[in-house]
Design a protein around this nucleic acid. Structure first.
Lengths: 166, 166
DNA sequence: AGTAAATACTACTGATTTGGTCTTATTTAG
DNA sequence: CTAAATAAGACCAAATCAGTAGTATTTACT
């Protein structure tokens, strides 16, 4: 019953991107692009892993990415419209507590008489609702979106124990 | 964001045990014991796997097991007092969406300034509540607890595709 | 009391999924 | 036109998980 590490990283990454005021760029049309490298350094996520996450998040239309020398990534939508559900599903795939709740699952032989499945469906939707209730705006609200950079962590603790959670 | 197969099996197993009126034995003091072998046959769960599950469930005080020739297993408590949370945690360990919510986790370096963690805590408790709301009595309610055995599945479809969910 | 059968318990092996790294292709600034 | 910086995709290794086999224990029967 745990989230995958990649999904955890993704939430941290998106949260960091939101704090960089990537959303205001959408509104103002300015170049609020953030490089994946910069984001990886600030969050402590290994660069190759961050790149993979960016790919998935861009494919899910959560990030807008352009490559090239001056390229980078940017939030595709305002933070208030991006929920945890979308981020998690972009990385882990659809949320399904049991395999019988998945999209293209092959029916098990007890499907018709199963008394457990309906209860799993209830639990599953409860989880979805809980994740839907939290938006990127909530996650990034704490330090404010004033365009200020997050202080360099390397300066304070060069090789501190790295964990997913920002 | 998926349940482990073992936890899924465990719920099916407990549900089957409840339908065998194992709880009434607790009340009446009769020998309502059910053998792990019988339960494995009825649910389609491989016997060794079922035995392992029984061990974990018994260690969590959800099942009362006695070995020997006439031994077997029995619900340790009335079905209405056993929730999905207890079953899942007996097999998968404590429910923690992220590793920073675990019991003995080593603090990550951003612990103090983390703006994401409090939101995970909310999500985590929401999941727990959803699982707590479902009891074994709910799962076993459908076919009624009249002591009737579940029909033999082998007779109808000898080698049908086996999936965890009853 | 001894034997045998049925049970729960423990330890091990194999496999699937997951996390991480590397290489390649593309694009733009100089 | 060149070179640097970027994203995207493919490959490899590790960890966790599912499953299986074997062992110890207990009770019923002889």
């Amino acid at each position: 019953m745990r989230l995958s590490s990649l999904a955890d990283y993704a939430v941290v990454l998106m949260s960091a991107a939101a704090r960089q005021c990537g959303a205001s760029a959408v509104v103002s049309g300015g170049s609020g692009r953030q490089s994946a490298r910069k984001l990886a350094e600030e969050t402590g996520i290994p660069l190759p892993t961050a790149q993979k996450l960016v790919s998935h998040l861009a494919a899910a239309d959560l990030l807008d990415s352009t490559r090239g020398a001056g390229g980078g990534i940017r939030l595709a939508r305002p933070p208030a419209t991006i929920t945890l559900t979308q981020i998690v599903e972009a990385v882990d795939g659809p949320i399904a507590v049991t395999s019988c709740l998945e999209a293209g699952h092959t029916a098990c032989m007890l499907e018709s008489t199963c008394s457990v499945k309906p209860h799993w469906a209830v639990v599953n939707s409860a989880i979805r609702n809980a994740l839907d209730a939290v938006t990127l705006a909530d996650l990034a609200s704490a330090p404010g979106c004033s365009g200020a950079h997050i202080p360099d962590f390397e300066a304070t603790s060069p090789k501190a124990k790295m964990e997913p959670h920002l």
